[in-house]
Amino acid sequence: MLELEQETTEIQHIQRIFDGKTAHHYLNKYIDPPEIEKDIIFFLWEAMRTASVSAVEKREQILAALFIHAAFETHEKVETGRHVKHGIKHRQLAVLAGDFFSSLYYSMLVDNGHVKILPIFSDSIQKINEQKMSLHFCEYKEEEELLESLRSAEGSLVANIAAYYGKEGLGTLAKTYFLLKKMYREREREQDKHLSSFAEGIYSFVEGRRADIVSEWPPPQTKSFLDEQIRSQQAELSRQLKTSVCHKNTPLFRRLKAILS
């Protein structure tokens, strides 16, 4: 179990390495610097808590996952040809920055001797891109199909790493948690009308037509859907928490409780 002080120090350490590796003077002029998703750190700490890997090795694998997350987030910002609100240079550099962050996960793993776990990462990226493509083209007849796709797109990287360490239950928890978190974010994101693949999938399913840009977000029907799903996923997370193996008094447990409140 990580004490609060240890937890803060470790996050700062990870942040420093992450910032150092992703920093690029020219990119930073046009692209917002990528942010670390702290919940990935908490979940992966928990997944590797009893594994026979050193603290440094844990940190390296966590960083690799954070680089992948940064790459996905950056590529989501690539605008379509019809809509270049942020300018052509922003679009060009968003493509390249995402590719650059993606190359960092590979070097982080292989330079530090984690070749064995490499297929878990590369396979997760493939699966996530498959889900994103399905969301983009809204290939769902049933609501459950859409939800499963959203769940996988958001949580399967962490879930697959957790499964690698024999923590399948934690992976299930991660999928629900990241789905819920993303739903909150998307519901509250009212400024930018350029939809993420996540929002695009929900919008197309609910409204019955595809769009990557909308004049109003979230439109009433989509908002009701999100409200309903958030309630349902909260209940699901609460249920999973009661039966899960997640230890109390861990940073992860506190995060999970926090999202429910």
Partner: peptide, 18 residues
């Protein structure tokens, strides 16, 4: 469209690593 190209490229990069 761009999004399809981004996902396809990312998917193929991951396949290369695999």
């Amino acid at each position: 469209d761009n999004r399809t190209a981004m996902y396809t490229g990312d998917y193929i990069f991951a396949k290369a690593v695999e």
